[in-house]
């Protein structure tokens, strides 16, 4: 599942210092569970994103260990504190070794 993976992240453009903001992330991925069978009865091998990490200026916001029970196109919504202006980095780790990354800057007013 190295092709067609597209991360989408919603972060406000600006916040006041110390404010708590809500972040929504979505990444297109089939999240093949390893439980399904194809029309010949063969098990389709597992291929999922197994970890998602969000960090801000190098400090962790949330670190999620994902299992096959997470739905197709994994979606997460969570809150983060913004102590200063900087950059959010979102990283997804695929079973096949691929790493998908998205970055969003935020200004402090």
């Amino acid at each position: 599942m190295a092709s067609g993976v597209k991360p989408r992240v919603k972060v406000p453009k600006s916040a006041s210092a110390g404010e708590t903001i809500t972040i929504k992330t979505l990444i297109s991925h089939t999240m093949e569970s390893g439980q399904r069978k194809d029309s010949d009865g063969n098990v389709i091998p597992r291929s999922i994103i197994n970890r998602f990490v969000a960090s801000f200026n190098g400090e962790t916001v949330i670190d999620v260990k994902m299992e096959p029970a997470i739905s197709t196109n994994p979606f997460f919504e969570f809150e983060a504190k913004v102590p200063e202006a900087g950059e959010f980095v979102f990283t997804w780790y695929d079973d096949d070794g691929d790493v998908y990354e998205a970055k969003k800057s935020i200004a402090v007013n």
């Binding site: 708590t20 916001v61 949330i62 999620v64 029970a69 969570f78």
Partner: peptide, 27 residues
């Protein structure tokens, strides 16, 4: 009730705004 009971583990870092999260799962 799933074949594999684990769904997800959320770990919160120092910049977590609240200790909450939402997602979508398979049952």
């Amino acid at each position: 009730g799933n074949p594999l009971p684990n769904v997800a583990t959320f770990s919160f870092g120092p910049l977590a705004g609240s200790h909450s999260a939402s997602t979508r799962i398979r049952l």
